[in-house]
């Protein structure tokens, strides 16, 4: 297991560098002159040249990229073109909000969706199943920012029971995390339902029932344990989508997180901050995928064996 984990961890390094490369390349192609932004219009040509050299933007692309990666390993995300400070200053203050929000949303999605999926599967083709399925299909398809606006209208404006914006208290996190979890919740519900259906028809459940295990134990112990694996995978795969969704949700709910920092930075052409936000998100997503893979391997030893033997996953 340790060996497997180590191998996966090592594999993260080239992937991360690849991610940085892709993001850096896109941003390299984005128009905009940082020096003019940083120095203002009164700068002398000498100062402009000096600053260009200091920022390293007259270097060739690969030199810039290489320096960026080296700096990154020491925790430096470069200088913001907007504030003139290190990007990490704003980025690191934004990260906790996004992480809290994402984790809450993930937890919420798992807690609600798995029972819902199970109920739908157990009561297949009955009203409960149709209700859950309808809810799930709407949830997967609903634009989250629209859901967010609707939730604010309902809970903050008409009912006045929850704050509409900000991060002042734990209550402020309720609406954004519900909104954020909406899509994921729905897709896990769908996955859980279909994997549960599959498992319930599996031979070993039939065997268990035949051997006199009660229906309840068969469903909630034997079947659920196996049917939960795809749900965890779906949660892991969609973690990136979840974090990406923060772009719109953090704007709607005025959460000063990474998503809002990203969209604000795009609007002000602050390329280093945009890169910082994307790289952070990508690394987080990679780590979560790693954790999910480990969980997966822990639950299902066949995968681990395959990975160790074949050296790669299909």
């Amino acid at each position: 297991m340790v060996k497997y984990a180590l191998k996966r961890l090592l594999y993260m390094i080239p992937v991360t560098i690849g991610v940085i490369f892709v993001v850096y390349l896109i941003m390299y192609l984005t128009p905009g002159d940082p020096v003019a932004l940083l120095l203002g219009p009164d700068a002398t040509p000498e100062l402009i040249e000096e600053t260009r050299a200091a920022l390293g933007i007259s270097d060739p692309f690969f030199v810039q990229f290489f320096n960026y990666v080296i700096n990154l390993f020491t925790g430096h995300f470069g200088t913001s073109w907007y504030t003139g400070n290190d990007v990490s200053l704003r980025l690191f203050s934004a990260i906790p909000y996004t992480l809290i929000l994402t984790i809450l949303a993930l937890a919420l999605a798992l807690i609600i969706s798995i029972p819902m999926g199970v109920i739908a599967a157990v009561r297949q083709n009955r009203p409960a199943d149709y209700a859950v399925s309808l809810f799930a299909i709407c949830g997967v398809s609903a634009p989250t920012f629209w859901v967010g606006i609707m939730l604010i209208l309902l809970f903050s404006v008409y009912m006045g029971i929850l704050p509409s914006a900000g991060v002042d208290s734990w209550e402020s996190y309720i609406l954004p995390s519900i909104t954020m979890s909406f899509n994921l919740l729905a897709s896990i519900t769908r996955t859980q339902r279909s994997s549960m259906l599959e498992v319930l028809r599996a031979d070993y459940i039939r065997t268990a029932k035949a051997k006199g295990v009660s229906n309840r134990v068969a469903v909630y112990y034997h079947a659920l344990r196996n049917a939960i694996i795809p749900s965890i995978t779906v949660a892991g795969i969609n973690f990136g989508t979840l974090m990406g969704g923060s772009v719109a949700i953090e704007t709607v709910f005025a959460v000063p997180g990474v998503g809002r920092l990203l969209s604000d930075s795009i609007k002000i052409h602050d390329t280093p901050t945009v890169i910082g936000c994307m790289v952070f998100t990508a690394i987080t997503v990679s780590i979560v995928n790693l954790i999910v893979d480990m969980l997966y391997a822990a639950i299902d030893p066949r995968i681990k064996a395959q990975y160790l033997k074949g050296g790669k996953k299909s």
Partner: peptide, 20 residues
């Protein structure tokens, strides 16, 4: 390459490219 592309949330990648 696909691993790398999978690691960046699609929406963010799209936004970055469109803004570029």
């Amino acid at each position: 390459v696909t691993d790398v592309l999978l690691a960046i949330p699609g929406l963010l990648l799209g936004i970055a490219i469109v803004s570029a």
